[in-house]
Design a binder for these strands. Structure first.
Length: 851
RNA sequence: GCGGGCGUGAUGGAAUGGUAGACAUACCAGACUUAAAAUCUGUUGGGCCUUGUGCCCGUGCGGGUUCGAGUCCCGCCGCCCGCACCA
């Protein structure tokens, strides 16, 4: 009897696939194509268990689609630019490129252990000049098309390190290294005009039938289309009018102040001779640039002293305040405050003793406004007070429309459709990214680099001993010639946001060696991605930017019209979590985290092996190195093999939900694969000619399993598909059918398992004398005839609760079922001689007797 | 703060609006063994009694729609994700 030894069979089959070129993507004239893509990884250096899940999910789809006769494209690459490489350079003096290349090499070795059906001939990293050079070409084409422009925008500035900080580098308003309070600083930066596509990106969501509804909803809310009123308020002192945008203009009667952004031109002008205001604005600049920080911060304001006239109630004068909560980027940078119908405005008004006036009230309710603003849904009816357009009781939506019409008619303002979506700032003041291919010439201005000079390569001789962007101080690299006049000029030192890199890699995979960004024939054939798999954390930005890029690439001739929505189907998987084991340490009370290997269960509790102290268990926590709860896939593969790791992550939880990694679960997966192995072994050793029992029953079960597993894979119900395979293993293990039937059953089972545990499946296939590779074998089909049962069991409910069951013929008529149901003992007993009030028969499903 | 999602036994989870708890883990019991491990078999949502082919309760909490709700609707609570320079 042989032993299941993944450490020998896994490398063996990996080699076999490799030398046979099993997973090379080839265009085919007689097969439908299928493009499976998982979000490519950042090369952090080590494979994370979350990667194992992500790539296994995609691999199941890829292998299954190959078996169902598709020409499959399943590529892999590296999202290789970004901050961690610079951090490594700062902390350890290692060159970012060297660090990144080492990480890629290391992770690629780890990837190979997983046995993924990838076409590695298409591999690239975004830090390859061949890749980012094509990205620079795209940038130039976008620039020519007017899809790129420059404007000022704020960044987080560390005044001590004299450097721009990413949002994650700002902790509680302070720079992560220097600890200095960050400031907002304005810089001239490059932007993609994604806002030109707001309407289009919103409308096209409707067509994305195979995207999760939640992702589409999140994107729609992010784009944030709103119809509102832009209305002007005249300054009492005769200064320039202040224009406000509101999506609730029906609350105009309740306006009691105007709040303008600290960056509003009026704020800036007034600050010139108002030191208090200047100080307040300076104070406001000491805040993160994140929206979350803005929203969470205490609402503060300063009265500018100027007033405006209410556009409708001319005798009402409103004070103008500068508010730290007003965004300059949205609307007009000024809002009117209506405390009665906006909670934030109400809090603000209470704080600064501003007037509170209702514009409407709920029918039958009083006007008193306490500490809670009245913010009804737009579909709810309210009673308007003294409405200028003559409204009384109406829905808020009707109130909004009437107000807009009135104001337009009287020349007070105009209807405006606005989007929350802002243009995409792509400039980064950093080294480790794709250089923006433009040149600054004293004579010619900002000039695009010539395409023949691409790629603009990053210099390799850089140091990180001084904070800031090494490109800025690399004079030799910066010095160049103006592409127009040929005089000495300076290169742009900003590099591109890494979201740019990941916004078109899926297109590049269709022809990774092409001397242009894409190759028309290859892109035409392989696009779109038929199934995209990745984390829900990318639901908005990455996916929205990619949708924009696909459109921009179409406009510049790099993608066909059919590829403007690049991802036909999207699947968002959950995280892999792991329990945290902690003990509280004495004085400071800070928890001490323990590795899983340091604890064990004892008397129903988790204790430290070392001294038996009880350990607190926090289940299902996000994996984090600092919490010592990270599972190393390599260690798991060395212990149990890749098939066990794959089987476990697939079986433990539905793929869209978080899955908790548990040692017992991994062991159970391993045990099961061992059982399958032994089962296969037993069948191989059976007497070929001995008669068997119940061959047909086994084969019927097999066909049901084919049907259920196929449905499971089709619907991403991998955990349920695996449960069916468990059940079938139990059946097969107990079967006393003939050799022929059992061999058929185990080979079919191997095929059904092949997308999940490909190495084990190959081995079973070979051991049972299968032809060729199981990876090349066509997917088994369920025989309809074998699925049909002659009778079925129907549950009987009495008043909706299950009380009994009956067995009826498969094709029994409704009348027959009723008759049998009414003859059932439990029904007779419950009816006690009376007639049922109602009798519901759902054919093939259920009978409900209502009494 | 805003937007989105999730919540089912001791645990992971299953269930086109139609038998809640499939399948697995853990626990307990049994077989095998000198013993242990491994393996195999069986029990296990809670409660009640009259121990039955029994009754009642039960899918975060509170309401609602329906012949019928884990599933749909409304309101809470808790956790997770995103918030534009982390990837």
């Amino acid at each position: 009897m042989s032993r299941y030894d993944p450490s020998t069979i896994e490398p063996k089959w990996q080699k076999a696939w490799d030398s046979a070129g099993t997973f090379l993507a080839k265009m085919s004239s007689d097969k439908p194509k299928y493009y499976v893509l998982e979000m490519f990884p950042y090369p952090s250096g080590n494979l994370h268990i979350g990667h194992v899940r992500n790539y296994t999910l995609g691999d199941v789809v890829a292998r299954y689609k190959k078996a169902t006769g598709h020409a499959v494209l399943h590529p892999m690459g590296w999202d290789a630019f970004g901050l961690p490489a610079e951090n490594a350079a700062i902390e350890r003096g290692i060159n970012p490129e060297v660090w990144t290349r080492q990480n890629i090499a290391n992770m690629k070795t780890q990837f190979a252990m997983l046995g993924l059906s990838l076409d590695w001939t298409r591999e690239f990293a975004t830090c390859d000049p061949e890749y980012y050079g094509q990205q620079q070409a795209l940038f130039l084409d976008f620039l020519e098309k007017g899809l790129v422009y420059r404007k000022n925008a704020v960044v987080n500035w560390d005044p001590v390190d004299m450097t721009v900080l990413a949002n994650e580098q700002v902790i509680d308003g302070k720079g992560w290294r220097s600890g200095a309070e960050v400031e907002r600083r304005e810089l001239t930066q490059w932007f993609f005009k994604i806002s030109d596509f707001s309407e289009e990106l919103l409308g096209a969501l409707d067509g994305l039938d195979n995207w999760p509804a939640k992702v589409k909803l999140m994107q729609a809310n992010w784009i944030g289309k709103s119809r509102g009123l832009e209305i002007s308020f005249q300054r009492v002192d005769g200064g320039e009018v202040i224009s406000c945008y509101s999506t609730r203009p029906d609350t105009l009667r309740g306006a009691s102040f105007i709040a303008i952004s600290p960056e509003h031109p009026v704020s800036r002008a007034l600050a010139e001779d108002n030191t208090d205001l200047a100080a307040f604005i300076a104070e406001c600049r000491k805040m993160d640039t994140t929206e979350a920080a803005m929203e969470k911060a205490e609402k503060r304001g300063l009265d500018t002293g100027i007033t405006v006239r209410h556009p409708i109630y001319k005798d009402v004068e409103l004070p103008v305040w500068v508010g730290n909560f007003v965004l300059m980027d949205y609307g007009t940078g000024a809002v009117f405050g209506c405390p009665a119908h906006d909670q934030r405005d109400l809090d603000f008004a209470r704080k600064y003793q501003l007037d509170v006036q209702s514009a409407f009230h709920l029918p039958g309710a009083d006007l008193e406004v306490g500490d809670v603003a009245l913010v009804p849904a737009k579909t709810e009816k309210v009673v308007y007070i003294d409405h200028f357009a003559g409204l009384t009781e109406a829905t808020s939506q009707e109130g909004i429309d009437a107000t807009i019409d009135y104001c337009e008619h009287h020349g007070l303002g105009e209807a405006q459709t606005k989007f929350r979506l802002r243009d995409w700032g792509l400039s980064r003041q950093r080294y480790w990214g794709a250089p923006i291919p433009v040149v600054h010439c004293d004579a010619c201005g900002v000039v695009p680099e010539k395409k023949e000079n691409l790629p603009v390569k990053l210099p390799k001789d850089v140091t990180f001993d001084i904070p800031g962007n090494p490109l800025d101080r690399h004079d030799a690299w910066r010095s160049t010639k103006c592409p127009i006049c040929g005089k000495p000029a300076q290169r742009e030192t900003d590099t591109m946001d890494t979201f740019v890199d990941s916004s078109w890699y899926f297109a590049r995979f269709t022809s990774p060696g092409s001397p242009t960004p894409t190759n028309a024939a290859e892109a035409e054939y392989w696009m779109n991605v038929d199934q995209y798999v990745g984390g829900v954390e990318h639901a908005i930005l990455h996916l929205l930017y990619s949708r924009f890029f696909a459109r921009a690439m179409h406009l510049t001739g790099h993608l066909p019209r059919t590829a403007i929505e690049p991802f036909n189907a999207l699947f968002t998987q959950g995280m892999v979590t792991h329990a945290i084991y902690q003990t509280k340490r004495g004085q400071d009370g800070r928890p001490v985290y323990h590795f899983p290997a340091e604890v064990e269960p004892r008397d129903g509790k988790m204790v430290l092996i070392e001294d038996g102290r009880e350990v607190e268990v926090i289940p299902s926590a996000k994996m984090s190195k600092s919490k010592n709860n990270v599972v190393d896939p390599v260690a798991i593969i060395e212990q149990f093999g890749a098939d066990t790791a794959r089987w476990f992550v697939l079986s433990a939880s539905p793929p869209e939900r978080d899955v908790e990694w548990t040692a017992s679960g991994a062991e159970a997966a391993f045990k099961h694969l061992n059982r399958v192995w032994m089962l296969c072994d037993r069948i191989a050793g059976m007497d070929r000619n001995a008669p068997g029992e119940a061959d047909e029953a086994l084969l019927r079960d097999m066909h049901k399993t084919i049907r259920d597993v196929t449905n499971g894979i089709d619907s991403f119900g991998f955990n349920a598909a695996i449960a069916k395979l468990y059940a079938f293993t139990n059946v097969l293990q107990k079967s006393r059918a003939s050799y022929g039937a059992q061999r058929k059953a185990v080979m079919t089972m191997a095929q059904l398992m092949a997308p999940m545990t490909p190495h084990l499946a190959e081995d079973i296939w070979a051991n049972q004398g299968g032809t060729g590779l199981i990876a090349d074998a066509p997917w088994p089909t369920a025989d309809e005839v074998m699925l049909v049962e002659s009778t079925l069991t129907l549950p009987i409910q009495i008043n909706g609760k299950r009380k009994s069951e009956i067995v009826v013929a498969k094709d029994a008529s409704k009348e027959e079922v009723e008759k049998i149901a009414l003859a059932d003992d439990a029904v007779i007993k419950a009816l006690a001689g009376t007639a049922p009030k109602k009798l519901i028969v759902v054919p093939g499903r259920i009978v409900n007797v209502v009494i």
